[in-house]
Nucleic acid binder design. Structure first.
Ligand SMILES: [Mn+2]
Ligand SMILES: [Mn+2]
Ligand SMILES: [Zn+2]
Ligand SMILES: [Zn+2]
Lengths: 139, 139
DNA sequence: TTTGTTTTGCAACTAGGTTGCAAATGCCTA
DNA sequence: TAGGCATTTGCAACCTAGTTGCAAAACAAA
């Protein structure tokens, strides 16, 4: 696990530092998306908040994580699939937020349906965020 | 036009004030969604920004306007259809942001398709935001 | 017009995020 | 494996968007 993390950083030409290792570890062991505040808490407040901001930015740029838009306009982050790289994200999947437990899921296997737009409109990207009750909280 | 605005306010049990009239007017003559900053500028900086925040909140609560989530986590507002009321929004339509001119459209006549979720997930709401080129900017 | 209620503007505050810079850490090569 | 260069970190200061308390102004009802 530790090895995989180091390799992932190397592959992206990032030096291996405590904060980067720890933050990646948090993402890999989380079962949903994480907010900046989650990381701050879960890392035991070892790192400056600025460091966390910069680490997240770097990871997004490198295609290691992607951001998830939410209805309440907070920012969430989740691991990208292997196909993503610097400047080329391929995170075309549906996101699901559980109203009950608050967990945000990347539903990688749910396809984005084609949507017929009015004449003249040409879509390049489709973001779908659903909410309701997740499989853990269901009954 | 002025009369319609006054009636809309009355129908929602809101007193008729300069700021509310002006802000409603801006929404009715806009062809897309508006951000707080747009309203601040377009109103000629006549109103305090706090007043604008509070007016927007009130309008959202009454079902006169609705918020639109965006990828860059800024907040946009647009007029609701007549069916919306306090505590009961029915704005289940697709939103479209033009990469070219920046206009955000409510596509009222585009239906949200059914999306098959993994077992155990139960959806209550679906938000779809598409982006690309709008009918004005197309060619 | 008077009176009571609602709304406004101002100032002060909060939360989330960014920037500049010196000190600390990590990487590379001898 | 130590030394030197480049990158990253932590701190302080700053910025922007949004919120709150309160007195003054505007509005609605009588
Ligand atoms: Mn995702
Ligand atoms: Mn809309
Ligand atoms: Zn849940
Ligand atoms: Zn356009």
């Amino acid at each position: 696990m530790q090895k995989r993390i180091a390799e992932l950083l190397k592959k992206n030409q990032l030096s291996i530092t405590e904060s980067r290792k720890k933050i990646l570890e948090l993402f890999q062991s989380a079962n949903g998306a994480l907010a900046h505040a989650d990381i701050e808490k879960q890392s035991g407040e070892h790192f400056d908040r600025v460091t966390i901001y910069r680490t997240l930015q770097t990871f997004v740029e490198k295609g290691i994580i992607h951001t998830i838009p939410t209805a309440d306009n907070s920012v969430l982050y989740a691991l990208c699939k292997d196909e993503c790289s610097a400047g080329h994200h391929h995170d075309n999947h549906v996101h699901f937020i559980c109203d009950d437990c608050g967990t945000t899921y990347c539903l990688d296997h749910v396809d984005i349906p084609a949507i017929q737009l009015p004449i003249g409109f040409k879509a390049k990207q489709t973001d779908i965020v659903m909410s309701g009750v997740c499989k853990e909280c269901n009954v």
